[in-house]
Amino acid sequence: MTSSEVSDPELVNVAEGLVISATRIGDGPAVLLSGGLGMPAAVWPFTGIPDALVDAGFSVITYSSRGLKPSSAPAAPYTIPQMADDAIAVLGHFGVDEAIIVGYSMGCYVTQALASQWSGRVHGVAMMAGLRSSAIGELVNEMEIGLIDRLGDLPDAVSVFEQLMTTLTPDQLVDDTAVRSWRKLLTSGDSPWAGPDGLRGQLSASQSWMLAKEPTPARLAGITAPTLVLSYQHDVFFPPAGSREAASHLPDAEFHELPGQAHGGVMLDPERRAVGLLTDFCRRVRPPTSPR
């Protein structure tokens, strides 16, 4: 089964008032994908990653984090360890006790915490566009939380501007046609948030993690599984220099800087370089008892 043939998600009861929507496709060793802030599971197929991993003989688990439809949005604030516990509940729901764990953007924070908190066996860790945040990332989070606290919500124009400025490449940002097209795309469709606490909750989780100077060298040193770190040349949220330095604290890591793309490279790179690198990595760290 490919990601284009996915059946309805399953609902995982994590706690009273908290249900996480999750899906598993394919057969073989499990790969868990944790998305970024405001990224529901339905976005993953657009990256090409689920289909590539299923074709390579893996099963792929995706889920929508607390705060995102069709999961529930408990009262804010949230924390990264709480969100990692949600992911652990998803793994338990599918009977998974060993896996490769993958994160994109804020999903890398969840992946770092998951590697510390999960009692199962982690065969590999992959972090894409999200290992260590920048001062710009802290500033944007602080600004958005402040606006929500003052206005009760984040104005659509602010959200769209932030997404455009960080997701698109420098060449796209000076192309008026591209900017207008992306603005139209970003303002069409329904909000991904499951309730008013969703955005505030995820922003607070991200902010608290960054203000704690996570990931600390000690946390990174504790991730002993083989680790793949992918960074994009023009990513202002997670610049390559910071992620390269952070990767130096990982005991068994390979680092790749992918040229020409910004924070949205995992979805927008026409060469799909992240797909190939991640798939090859998963093949290398596949449990030894698994074929292919």
Rank of each mutant, 00 (worst) to 15 (best):
H123A: 14
V102I: 05
P74I: 06
L114K: 02
S116V: 01
V102M: 09
W118E: 10
D97K: 13
G146T: 01
A135P: 07
L131F: 11
H123K: 09
D85I: 10
P70Y: 11
G137V: 07
A113N: 02
A115W: 07
Q112P: 02
H93Y: 08
M106V: 09
D86T: 00
A113M: 12
I80A: 09
L131S: 00
D86P: 05
A135Q: 11
S71D: 13
A89Y: 01
F94T: 09
V122C: 05
S116Q: 15
I88V: 15
I148A: 00
M83F: 02
A73I: 04
C108G: 14
M127S: 12
G124Y: 02
A84Y: 02
N141R: 15
R121I: 14
Y78W: 02
G95E: 02
L91E: 02
I148S: 01
D86F: 00
F94G: 04
S72T: 15
C108A: 14
P77D: 01
L154K: 13
S71W: 04
H123F: 06
R150E: 10
M106P: 07
V102Y: 13
R132A: 14
G146M: 08
I148R: 04
P77V: 04
G146L: 09
E144R: 15
P81S: 06
I148H: 05
E138G: 14
L147M: 15
Y109K: 05
M83K: 02
C108N: 10
A99M: 06
V96S: 08
V96T: 08
V96A: 07
P70R: 06
M106H: 01
P70Q: 04
K69Y: 10
I88Q: 12
K69N: 11
A75K: 15
I101C: 06
L68H: 03
G137Y: 07
E98M: 03
L151N: 14
L114P: 13
G120F: 05
A76F: 14
I88S: 11
M83N: 07
S71H: 08
P77H: 05
E98A: 13
E98P: 00
I145V: 10
C108L: 09
A115P: 10
E144K: 15
Q82R: 06
L68K: 00
S105F: 08
A73E: 03
E144Y: 11
T79P: 03
H123L: 13
L151S: 12
N141G: 12
A75V: 13
M106A: 06
Q82M: 11
A73P: 01
E98D: 10
T111G: 12
M128C: 14
E142D: 13
L147H: 12
S105D: 10
M143K: 13
Q82K: 08
M127D: 04
A89L: 07
A126I: 00
I101A: 07
E138Y: 07
M106W: 08
G92T: 03
Y109T: 05
L114W: 02
Y109D: 14
H93L: 08
A76I: 03
I80K: 09
S105K: 06
T79A: 00
E98L: 03
G95V: 10
L131I: 01
I101E: 11
Q117A: 14
I80W: 02
A99F: 06
R121H: 13
P81L: 12
S133Q: 09
I136N: 11
L131C: 07
G152F: 10
S116H: 15
S134T: 12
L114N: 01
A126S: 15
N141V: 08
